[in-house]
Computed example of a mutant assay.
Amino acid sequence: MRLGLRHAMPSVELTIDTPAAAVWDVITDLTAWPEWGPSVTGAQLDTPGGLEAGARGKVWTPVGVPLPFTITEFVEGRAWAWRVAGVPATRHEVIPRGEERCVLSFGVPLWAPAYLTIMAIALPRIEKLALARA
């Protein structure tokens, strides 16, 4: 696991020995978010379909509070970012490294570097789920 700066955001990254598509599948599957996200117990979109730029929904926290979210950036197969309760939140990026390997990078706002700890917990969970899907 590496700490760094990507897209002007503090980031934590993990190289995963599985195809990028499997990792992308995990991080865009809202039903899987509670399995890998320590601060998420549920998520749903307001309208049917998948993640895309402008999509809106709700994410539930461990204390049961639903917070509205909006997808602010979306590049199919590569990256997505969001605002939660109107506040800029995390950015998720999958960087292919050949056919069977990729880097998963999570960026956090400059004002929230402590959240990198939560992201560091999520990375190996995503790796495990992606390996099972590959």
Rank of each mutant, 00 (worst) to 15 (best):
F106Y: 13
G64M: 05
W82F: 10
L67W: 05
G37W: 11
P19C: 08
P48F: 01
A132W: 11
S11D: 00
G57S: 02
P68I: 10
T18R: 03
V12D: 06
P66Y: 10
I95K: 09
A85R: 14
L67S: 08
L3H: 15
V103S: 08
G50A: 08
W60R: 13
V94C: 06
L3Y: 15
A55D: 03
A43N: 07
G77R: 03
L67E: 11
I121T: 14
V84P: 00
W60S: 11
P48S: 03
L123C: 00
E100Y: 11
A120Y: 04
L3S: 15
F69M: 00
G86L: 05
G98Y: 03
T61R: 14
V65Q: 14
V40D: 11
W24Y: 02
T41M: 07
V103N: 12
F74W: 12
W80T: 03
H7S: 08
L5W: 12
R91D: 00
A132M: 13
M119Y: 07
P34H: 03
I27E: 05
T61L: 00
W82P: 02
A89R: 10
V59G: 11
W82H: 08
S11I: 05
M9C: 01
T47E: 10
T70V: 15
P113M: 02
T61C: 06
G98I: 00
L129A: 05
G77K: 09
G98S: 04
V94A: 06
A81L: 08
T28M: 06
T18Q: 08
G57L: 07
E73H: 05
G4I: 07
A43C: 10
L129M: 02
Y115H: 03
L116D: 01
V63R: 14
S39I: 10
P124E: 06
G37S: 10
A85H: 14
R125A: 00
A79S: 15
W60G: 01
P48I: 04
L129I: 01
V65D: 13
H7D: 13
R133C: 01
I16P: 12
G64P: 07
C102W: 01
V87G: 01
L45V: 05
T70S: 11
V63Q: 13
H7R: 14
V40Q: 03
G50M: 08
E52V: 09
I121S: 12
P96C: 02
T61Y: 09
C102G: 07
A130H: 09
R125L: 10
P62W: 11
E76N: 07
E13V: 04
I95A: 04
D25H: 13
T15V: 04
D25N: 14
L131Q: 15
M1D: 13
R78K: 14
E73D: 09
E93Y: 01
D46S: 05
A122R: 00
G42F: 02
E100V: 05
F74L: 06
A8I: 08
T72R: 06
V23W: 03
F69D: 00
T31C: 03
I95S: 05
K128F: 08
D17R: 15
A43F: 02
L129C: 03
L51V: 07
L116M: 07
R101P: 05
D29L: 09
T90M: 07
K128R: 15
A112E: 04
K128C: 08
L14T: 11
L30Y: 01
L51I: 08
A132N: 14
A122P: 13
E99W: 00
R91S: 13
V75K: 15
A21G: 13
L116T: 09
V75W: 06
V40G: 04
